[in-house]
Design a binder for these strands. Structure first.
Length: 117
RNA sequence: CCCCUGCACGGGGUCACCGCGAGAGUAACCCUCUCGAGGAAAGUCCGGGCACCCCCAAGCCACCGGCCGGAGAAUAUCCGGGCUGGCCGCUCCAGCCAGACCAACAGGGCCACAGAAAAGAACCACCUGCGCAAGCAGGAACGGGUGAAAAGGUGGGGUAAAAGCCCACCGCCGCUCUCAGCAAUGAGACGGGCGAGAGGAGAUGGCAACAUCGCCUCGAAGGUAACCUGCCGGAGGGUGCAAUACCGAAUAGGGACUCCCAGCGACGCGGCUUGCGUCCGACGCGGAAACGCCGAGGAGAGUCCGGGUUGGCAGCUCGACGCCUGAUGCAAAUCAGCGCGCAGAUGAAUGGUGACCACUCCCGCAAGGGAGCACAGAACCCGGCUUAUACGUGCAGAGGAGAC
RNA sequence: GCCCAUGUAGUCCAACGGUAGAGACAGAGGACUUAAAAUCCUUCCAGUACCAGUUCGAAUCUGGUCAUGGGCA
């Protein structure tokens, strides 16, 4: 069964997640907040200009993170998890890391965050 | 031929798997189809469209622009022409590039230091007079020196000494005329270095202030208007799609009515009352003050009303649009044909991965291997400007005559 | 996205268009002290964010880049 995933939209949601648990990897950080009333998962992406660079680099970083997350969790029928908000924050080396490593890091980080996949 | 610099144009392609946004096919889901970043999307420097507010009569203030002509909705835009400057050590021609390129006699301000003096110039030296001398008075911008800048240059005349004071040539300036040009402007001719201003006396007009006219004497001439300013021209101004319009929860707050509770300083009206009037009166507002104005309950329940936040929806993409073809024009551009094309997101889609082919570089005899592939991401929409840009292509970076 | 403001020593900041640049704190040295703090004296540190233009002359005036900061739902 697939996981129900919703995009986080409001600024307040992102601010709330800053208080949550942090799961770091080489190229990104996941901030996890327990939200029991959330039926599935809420997920947001942050690519700051200070960490990543100009607008083209920010777009590319966000799209790669989305693609990796979709492949590992959102479109994976085996994935399971609920009641969590995840904010995935890009770090500087993200654009230099190969896709396979990003997949590996994402699996590991999501497992640590409480999502099985 | 190579390198570098500048300008213009272009600024990757194909396939597979998995995804995203919008629209259509449907009333909706599934599903299918179509479309889905740029020349700068950037900086936000100009100009508009559009929306709201203010003023809606004109003018002043403030603002913007400034060679001429044309284009354009408009501009600090574009095109053509002129002039000036740079390339360039002297001159001229042609070439390329650049130019915020009206006025310094409307007026004011400023021009440090140096220098006698920085704008109605006398320090030294010069000349004249007085004086034994020191010096004083006057004449006089030729020389010295200072400076970014010192009141045209050369020669001659002239003089006490001098000076455009006069003359010749040259330069510059403005006026007039002729020719060319729509014009800016250019070529030539003629006359002139006069004028502006100050002072004086006079005539005419006028009650007067004053105006006009000619005469006499003196007599300025630098730079800066991206300092104030004057002149000419322009546009109603301001805010900006986070404009603006509509829909509209929950919570809090506002208003009206009803119910409930409490009913309080004094006096009067009133049969009584929670009613009415007057005085006093906390807090508040105006005022320097005097004083004036306003003028009293709640902690509750219900109903209704309007404001308004998160949110939603409209604005939101076909338009002064781009390409192509034809006509006009040196060109910017305009007109015609309708032949082709058309992103609309809102924590924000336009992608991720893999393979192959282009292109460039490196290693290698080769097979092949490795690395790179710029600047950069729409956010209401247009016209410009500016800045960034690997690589590829094209063009230019240059010449002639004379003098030394 | 839109609208503004500001850039000067290590830091905070002055400076009519005129020798290119004042202070304060900090730093260094010295005096005082047994030693330190405080205080006093001396000294060091800028070429005014960058690039052009106007001007005899620019931190200042004008234009353009870059950086930083702020406001608007």
């Amino acid at each position: 069964m697939a996981v129900q995933v919703r995009r986080l939209m409001k600024r307040q949601d992102f601010v709330d997640c800053k208080l949550g648990r942090r799961v770091p990897t080489q190229s990104f950080v996941i901030q996890v907040l327990e939200k029991p009333e959330e039926a599935g998962l809420g997920v947001g992406f942050t690519t700051s200009s200070a960490a990543v660079g100009n607008a083209v680099a920010r777009n590319r970083a966000r799209r790669r993170l989305k693609a990796v997350f979709d492949e590992v969790c959102r479109l994976n029928p085996a994935a399971a998890g609920q009641g969590l908000w995840l904010v995935i924050v890009a770090k500087a080396p993200i654009l230099k890391i190969e896709h396979a490593y990003l997949l590996k890091d994402m699996r590991k980080a999501l497992a640590e965050a409480g999502v099985s996949c």
